[in-house]
């Protein structure tokens, strides 16, 4: 256990996250984990970690951290203008910070959530198989809560030979975050609870992200999606990217802080490869929907997993990715 950061300013919402707490949803526990799995996994790969190592998830306004030990780090996801001391540092690329350096974020540019990975991974106690912070149950991460001023963050030890290698992600794998996003979805499981007009409205309209959005869900506002006979269903299991439409006809995209069950109709689900786009949506961004088939969604997912495999395999060879 090595002290790696001292929190000078915590930022808007900074939490420790990994890929989630799996296997306890049937007991009502939220899965938690990084909202943007892509940025989280890439950050880890860039510093030579397993992709489920714990990172810091940073929201909109970044923290100011004092570096307590020289270490390789990488920052991915939202561009919040990261600086080390008085110089800007790149995103999607690993670099070394030295003891005494100040890592800060100088202002919002694009996206919503950034991830800070450190070589070796953050070292917090595992709770029920995961290091993720669950803000509702107040478990996991750093004492089950968001970071506050004065916290000391710990990391696992690393082999010194890994420290100096710098890696960057090829440009074509770096996502760009725009204010208008096209999100691909699969209809169901309750698409039959909506009128044909309701489905048509959903697929052809533009929706705006509201300011009540958080780790639990991204709330959208726009033309009302019409139900046949109401929005209530018997409570059933929820899933990442579920698009719930309650009685008011306004969709909510469920993210990693979601509850395990829900009692409202779900018109569809965001396909996995588009979840990182949803994770980076911020208030006033606009969303339009495109319907795809399950086979298309899986083809895209297989392609992405192959890229992750290639990236993982190149760990230890050094140089660029």
């Amino acid at each position: 256990m090595i002290h790696i950061f001292n929190v000078i300013k915590p930022g808007l919402l900074t939490t420790v996250q990994d890929l989630g707490r799996k296997g306890y949803q049937k007991y009502g526990l939220s899965v938690s984990g990084a909202v943007d799995y892509y940025a989280h996994r890439i950050a880890n790969i860039l510093v030579g970690n397993q992709d489920n190592a714990a990172t810091l998830e940073v929201t909109m306004i970044g923290p100011t951290l004092k570096v307590l030990e020289t270490r390789k780090i990488a920052i991915t996801g939202a561009d919040l203008t990261p600086y080390v001391n008085n110089s800007p540092v790149p995103l999607w690329r690993s670099f070394t910070v030295s003891e005494g350096d100040i890592l800060s974020f100088q202002g919002y540019r694009s996206g919503c959530r950034a991830y800070i990975a450190v070589a070796g991974g953050l070292d917090v106690e595992e709770t029920l198989g995961s290091k993720s912070t669950d803000l509702i149950s107040e478990i996991g991460g750093h004492h089950g809560r968001r970071l506050i001023k004065g916290d000391t963050i710990t990391a696992n030890a690393v082999h010194t030979n890994k420290i100096c290698l710098s890696r960057r992600l090829s440009t074509e794998l770096i996502p760009t975050y725009t204010k208008h996003v096209r999100v691909r979805i699969i209809l169901g499981p309750q698409d039959d609870a909506f009128t044909a007009k309701g489905i048509e409205t959903f697929l052809s309209s533009e929706y705006t992200v509201t300011k009540d959005s958080n780790r639990m869900g991204c709330r959208l506002e726009g033309p009302t999606i019409e139900h046949k006979n109401g929005a209530d269903i018997l409570s059933e299991g929820m899933f990442m990217g579920a698009i719930q439409v309650p009685q008011n006809g306004q969709p909510i995209l469920f993210l990693s802080g979601r509850p395990s069950v829900g009692g409202y109709t779900k018109i569809g689900g965001v396909i996995t490869v588009d979840l990182p786009k949803v994770a980076q949506l911020k208030p006033n961004d606009r969303v339009s929907i495109e319907k795809v088939t399950l086979d298309e969604a899986h083809e895209l997912l297989y392609k992405q997993e192959n890229i992750f495999k290639l990236l993982q395999a190149s760990i230890g060879e050094g140089g660029g990715l």
């Binding site: 949803q25 018997l234 059933e236 299991g237 929820m238 069950v261």
Partner: peptide, 12 residues
């Protein structure tokens, strides 16, 4: 994992 509901099983 599985999630139980009143009349449903969700399978991840």
């Amino acid at each position: 994992e599985v999630i139980l509901g009143y009349t449903t099983i969700l399978i991840h």
